[in-house]
Simulated assay, not measured.
Amino acid sequence: MAYKIGYRTLKTAVGAALAIAIAEGLQLEFSASAAIITILCISITRRSSLRVSWERVAACLVGMAVSAILFELIGYHPWTLGLILLLFIPITVMVKVTNGIVTSSVIILHLYSVGAVSFSIIVNELLLIVIGVGVALLMNLYMPSNDRALRHYHKEIEEHFKTILRELSSYLRYGESDWDGKEIPETLELLKKGKNLAFHNIQNHILRYEDQYYYYFKMREKQFDILERLMPFVSRVHHTVAQSKIIADFLEDLSRSVSPVNRVPYFQERLESIKQTFEEMPLPTTREEFEVRSTLFYIMQELEQYLHIKDQLWNQADKKKL
């Protein structure tokens, strides 16, 4: 098995070395702690790195303030250290900066080791924090692009949707099918992975909260729910009628046009025209025909919603770009 170094591992190694080099260059005490802070602040996304860095800085400031007061009032004893942690940890929980507990504990131990609170040691600790956090943020400026993987999920989902719609069309047309349905669980997994990756991609942009890929996977996820609801109803149509063949033609054309930029209004108008055509047809003469046509009417309603979801979400995405 080949050993592979990930980009995050590489950033952590380079960042830690750079942080120590800067701290030693400034002749700071406990220079290795700058590397520890850098390692702790490097995260999987830019946004989470900013959040974690802020929490660590805030927690360190609180920790220094609490420990400086108690050490000077009570003395530099092990039990004083325990008392500081008893007070400090609940404070971090209250102000929601718990990610900074470990980093702050390192700073508190520095004060305990020195055995005195002075201007020079406070400046030393603040510089360690600034160097550690600053280098981590610098390292996190680089994040590998996810576009290739996102395009892969996009393409695979499109192909799976085409297959599902085509097979539904075939069943309505012939009243039977040898389709094994493997695209259903595969599509579900592709949507899950694609949406997670799109969300991860958003987290790498500081001021962006949604993007086109995110809207795409969100749209397809909702449409897939509709396709899943349709399947048991399509499977009930064992007796083919003229109306089922019309819906089959519609589904087949829809399968050929699966694309994020297909003409939704065209299919909406066509579906409305089909509904009007059905209304003008003679009423069913048998119970079986009545049940089939009722099922087809429900399928048309779901297809209307299927098209509406794309129209609605894509319009929202266009507004976000304005």
Score class of each variant (00 low, 15 high):
Tyr266Gly: 14
Phe267His: 11
Arg8Gln: 01
Arg229Trp: 03
Glu189Asn: 10
Tyr3Asn: 08
Ser145Pro: 02
Ser49Gly: 06
Lys162Ala: 13
Pro260Trp: 05
Thr103Glu: 14
Gln203Met: 08
Ala23Pro: 01
Glu252Pro: 10
Tyr266Thr: 13
Gly75Phe: 14
Lys320Trp: 07
Trp54Arg: 13
Leu111Phe: 04
Leu207Ile: 11
Arg208Tyr: 06
Ala17Val: 15
Gly175Asn: 00
Asp147Ala: 05
Gly6Lys: 09
Asn201Leu: 01
Leu138Thr: 10
Leu70Thr: 01
Ile37Asn: 02
Leu111Lys: 02
Tyr153Trp: 05
Tyr171Glu: 03
Leu126Asp: 12
Ile131Asp: 02
Val114Glu: 08
Glu125Met: 11
Gln203Thr: 06
Arg208His: 07
Ala198Phe: 04
Glu269Asp: 15
Val97Met: 02
Thr9Gln: 09
His239Phe: 05
Phe233Met: 15
Ala35Asp: 10
Glu186Gly: 06
Ser33Phe: 10
Gly75Pro: 15
Leu128Glu: 14
Thr45Glu: 02
Ile91Ser: 13
Thr285Asp: 09
Leu109Asp: 04
Ile274Trp: 07
Lys222Ser: 00
Thr80Asp: 03
Asn262Ala: 08
Glu55His: 13
Leu191Lys: 04
Tyr216Cys: 09
Tyr142Thr: 12
Phe250Val: 14
Pro232Lys: 13
Asn201Trp: 00
Val123Asp: 15
Met64Val: 12
Val130Pro: 05
Thr45Lys: 01
Met281Val: 08
Tyr215Gly: 05
Leu73Asp: 02
Lys4Ala: 11
Met143Lys: 11
Val130Ala: 15
